[in-house]
Computed example of a mutant assay.
Amino acid sequence: MKRVSFAEFGGPDVLRLIDAEEPHAGPGQVRIAVRAAGVNPVDWRIREGQVLGAHPISLPSGVGLDASGVVDEVGEGVTGFEVGDPVFGEGSSTYAEFAVLSAWARIPAGLTFEEAAGYPSVVETALRVLREVGVRPGQTLLVSGASGGVGSAVLQIARDRGIAVIGTAGAANQDYLRSLGAVATTYGEGWVARVRQLGRVDAALDLAGSGVIRELIELTGDPEKVISIADLGAPALGVRFSGVAGSVPDALAEAVDLISRGRLRIPVEKAYPLAEAAAAHADSQAGHTRGRRVLTV
Rank of each mutant, 00 (worst) to 15 (best):
V39R: 03
G53M: 13
R159F: 03
G89D: 06
P86M: 03
V268M: 01
G11L: 11
D43W: 03
G246D: 12
V192Y: 06
A230P: 06
R292Y: 05
V51E: 07
V226L: 00
A280H: 01
S58Q: 15
A96P: 03
V135S: 12
V133P: 04
T79C: 07
R194V: 11
I57A: 09
S102Q: 13
N173I: 02
F6A: 08
G188E: 08
E224L: 13
S284N: 02
V30S: 00
F98N: 12
L198E: 08
V70N: 07
R35S: 14
G62H: 10
P27N: 09
A208N: 10
P249H: 00
T168C: 00
V244T: 14
R293I: 09
A172N: 05
L177S: 09
E189N: 08
A251W: 00
T289C: 12
G151L: 06
T168G: 04
Y119D: 01
Q197R: 15
D85T: 13
I227Q: 08
G77E: 11
D206A: 00
A146L: 08
A25R: 04
G188P: 03
V74I: 05
E218R: 10
L216H: 01
V244A: 13
K270N: 09
V150K: 12
K225T: 08
E224R: 15
H288E: 02
A245I: 03
L216V: 04
S102M: 11
A182L: 12
G181R: 11
A103F: 10
F113A: 13
R31I: 10
P12L: 12
A208M: 11
A126Y: 05
Y119P: 02
A182T: 14
R290V: 10
G291F: 01
V78H: 04
P108T: 05
T289G: 07
F6Q: 00
E73N: 08
Y95E: 00
Y272Q: 02
G89Q: 04
R290W: 02
L295T: 12
L127E: 14
A203C: 10
R263P: 02
R261C: 00
T112L: 01
E73W: 07
R293V: 07
L232D: 11
A109W: 06
I32Q: 08
V150L: 11
L252C: 13
